[in-house]
Amino acid sequence: MSFSRLVARWQGLALSLVGVVATVWLGLSGQLGLYIHPRYFVFTLIMAAVAVVLIVGAFAAVPAADDDDHAGHGHGPGAHGSGSHDAGGHRAPGGRSRLWMLTATAASILVVVAAVVALLVVPPATLTSSTVEQRSINSASTTLDANRTSGGVGSAAPGGSDDTSAYTVKDWSLLLRQGVGLDWFDGRSASVTGFVTPDADDPDNVFFVARFVVTCCAVDAQPVGVAVYEPGWQSSYPTDSWVSVDGTFGADPSVLSTANIVLTPASITGIPQPSDPYVY
């Protein structure tokens, strides 16, 4: 069997194996949450288990199919992958089609190598501030948690004195976005945890304590955050490091920043990245 056909035949199983090993490893080490919403955890792991059974079976069965192919029956069921590059296998071995097949084989190997590097070599990571810039912070008025947060807005709106101590970055950013006025926010204390990302308009004085809100997977992550006024913050807290900020809300002293209400910190503590960096 030629090398090209060997590659074409095993490429799918190799990629499946890489995907399954990566998925199971992420699942066992509790890092699946870096890529997908927790509601998919069980489904993903079950399908990974099913895939393991199928891959094991295919490893045993495919060589047999290969024998059929060579025993002269012509079309063994496993003989041809369906990718367009397999079509070259039946052409006359002209120079051009051979070159093309070599290219296709090289491309196949490249995909497998890239998959191994991306899924197994690169350590799992969260999204960074560079994605925050791409997706402008607080552009989404997330209302997924409507029952919790809208209740909060309803009862905590001006005059209310309910408990806001459990509010996350997402809850606060939602309240800020919904236009609850400064008179309600002024003097209210908050404790929020998130990563540091600079304010686009006044990066010297204002930074956001931000989190990504994930609906399905990291691709749809939308950044939300609470603005913190702390001139010269960059010297102490690098961008993308995780912090916990205690402070009180007040009017924004910064002229440049578009945020109207900012958190004036009483204390900022650097913390390690939490195991569940995204909010849902």
Partner: peptide
């Protein structure tokens, strides 16, 4: 950072779609 996010985003698409493809 953009390179890192590119990898993270691509992995996320793979991990999310893989079970559905299976």
């Amino acid at each position: 950072d953009p390179a890192r996010d590119f990898v993270t985003l691509s992995i996320s698409v793979v991990i999310e779609s893989l079970p559905f493809v299976f």
